[in-house]
Amino acid sequence: MDYFIELFFSGLTRGSIYALIALGYTMVYGIIGLINFAHGEIYMIGAFTALIVSTVLTIYGFPLLAVIVLTALAAVIWAASYGYTIERLAYRPLRSAPRLSPLISAIGMSIFLQNYVLLAQTSDFQPFPALIPEFDFMEPYAHIVGSSDLAILVVSAIVMILLTFMIKFTRTGKAMRATAQDRKMAMLVGINVDNVISITFITGSALAAIGGLLIASHIGQINFYIGFIAGIKAFTAAVLGGIGSIPGAVLGSFILGLTEAFATGYVSSDYEDVFAFSLLVLILIFKPAGLLGKATVEKV
């Protein structure tokens, strides 16, 4: 039973990280209908920035709390800047191009960023300092669920609640929803669509950076390639939940996280990634609109 609960929590932790990345995919897709292949790389850049900043700050003798806060801030700021720049450089000029063009551009951006980090930093796995401390009150349960699992769950829950609040109740959120529904109509009622798209990219990237920071601190090592697999998996989660739907992305992520945790725990860990991909293919065959997504008919 303990093993089951352990797997369950590990699934939840994975799920919440996937959710943080999948939200970015689903928001961007909802607004401009593009799979942002470079999103996984944003997550990786967030993790790398966190690693660099935290190491530098630790060397210069900052206290732990300051290191955590500044690292998180730096990761979010830089990842968001990268997200914004990618949209401006690689996607905006192609907004009225045929469908294939922005997709190819996105793939190119993803390959470029991976190799940029590889060349600028290193190809080896880098150890990542455990930024999340061990909580004393978690001691009795430490064999089932670790402190960092708990921290990840709590932080992602807070972030997701904030995001929901932003989308539901703020002016920006309203503008985002309007743009997602009908871009031309949104333009007509006076929404600056370019700004809304930029904000979407910035928000999505910030979420991915938080995910990157949390998972890097949890697993304890990163390299330039982590964004690729995480990106595909988060995309799977977004499709599972229904791409374009925000609650769908969260639901899909938890389902994917739990499936992976149980499958690796009870079946085999060699095929960890195969489970996710097979799940993706299966959903696309049987329910292409996803669990919470709406089936859309293309209008002429």
Binding site: A90, S105, G108, S110, I111, Q114
Partner: peptide
């Protein structure tokens, strides 16, 4: 690979 990635983006634009 860095150049290949850049080529994909630059050619598209």
């Amino acid at each position: 690979m860095l150049v290949f990635g850049a080529i994909l983006v630059i050619m598209m634009i």
